[in-house]
Amino acid sequence: MRRRVKRIPYKSEELEAQINGEIMSITELKKDLDATREFKSELTRDIEENKKRLSSVIELQSELSNKLQISSTAKSRAEARLEKAVTARADMVREIEELRRQKDVLQRRIEFCKEKDAIGMASRLGDLTCSYKEFTI
């Protein structure tokens, strides 16, 4: 029986050592679990923050896209108005040139008519001066 008595305390020390080892293992695992939970919590906060940022960026992108579309439409309208104005200006320039040409023609006609009238008047005056009668006493 002596052997049994010696073996029992030896096994109890061994079991105690194993229990202590398991307790230390469990303590380390709890620390690891707490650290992992904290890491997970930080990641969750980071993910939520990044979701909010992404949402803001998407909203801003949508706003900018709308503004770009409005600007593009306004630009197209302005270009169309500019094209009409350029066409109208070209038409006006052509019309002005035509009116100037007509003015020159009319001025030449007026000069011609004035000269003709002057010649006519001179010939009539010449007829009057040439056709005088002389009276004697």
Rank of each mutant, 00 (worst) to 15 (best):
R2W: 13
R3W: 05
P9D: 15
P9W: 15
Y10V: 13
K11Q: 15
K11A: 09
E13G: 07
E16I: 10
Q18I: 10
I19H: 12
G21Y: 02
E22W: 13
E22D: 14
I23E: 10
M24S: 14
S25E: 10
S25W: 05
I26E: 14
L29M: 10
L29H: 05
K30G: 01
K31N: 10
K31S: 06
K31M: 08
A35M: 00
T36Y: 08
T36G: 05
E38D: 02
F39L: 11
F39S: 14
F39Q: 15
F39A: 13
L43N: 14
I47L: 01
I47N: 03
E48W: 04
N50E: 09
N50W: 02
K51Y: 04
K52C: 00
R53P: 00
L54S: 15
L54G: 06
L54M: 12
S56A: 11
S56I: 06
S56T: 06
V57P: 01
E59T: 09
L60R: 11
L60T: 13
Q61H: 03
E63S: 03
E63N: 02
E63Y: 03
S65G: 00
N66F: 12
Q69L: 06
S72A: 04
A74K: 10
K75Y: 11
K75T: 10
S76A: 08
S76T: 08
S76M: 08
S76C: 04
E79L: 10
L82M: 07
L82T: 03
K84F: 07
K84L: 07
A88W: 06
A90W: 03
D91W: 09
M92C: 14
V93L: 15
V93I: 15
E95A: 14
R100M: 12
R100W: 09
R101H: 13
Q102H: 01
K103W: 07
K103H: 08
D104I: 15
D104Q: 10
L106T: 01
Q107S: 14
R109L: 05
R109V: 06
F112D: 14
F112L: 04
K114R: 00
E115P: 00
D117K: 15
G126M: 03
D127R: 12
L128R: 02
L128I: 00
C130F: 09
S131Q: 11
S131Y: 02
K133A: 04
F135P: 00
F135K: 09
T136P: 03
T136V: 04
